[in-house]
Amino acid sequence: MNLITGLMADATNIATIFLMVAGLYVVIARGNMVKKLVGLSLFQSSVYLLYLLPGKILGGSAPILDPKLTVYANPLPHVLILTAIVVGIGTLALGLTLVVRIKEAYGTFEEDEIIARDGAKAGEQGDVA
């Protein structure tokens, strides 16, 4: 039991950082734009976790007041993260709409193909001028 308690002190933080960094890696390493947005969602969710972990008190309960209970989790991180989740879905919807538009305009949603096409177009215009 002591082993788990000792491990917990660092394990929650390290696991949260792992989830976060995995999301960051997907955003940078994958050229596909939908995959990038999946990575961004991973990153976002792990930030929610980072905010909620310190609010927890072991043996406490959810911040809904009741005469039978005395120890509650801190409600402020919960409120902030509720706002963050709703704003996150707004940005995700906008990002996905942009991906749909890019796919229709370019015929692809792979980052390097789009850059290659833009480069080719700029080269043609340079030749004409």
Binding site: V34, P63, L96
Partner: peptide, 25 residues
């Protein structure tokens, strides 16, 4: 973690609506 309101929002918005948005895209 005793964040029941956040859990409900994450399950409905994070797992529900965002999956639907992704599948639509």
């Amino acid at each position: 973690l005793d964040a029941v309101d956040v859990a409900m929002t994450e399950a409905s918005v994070g797992a529900g609506i965002s999956t639907v948005l992704f599948l639509g895209a």
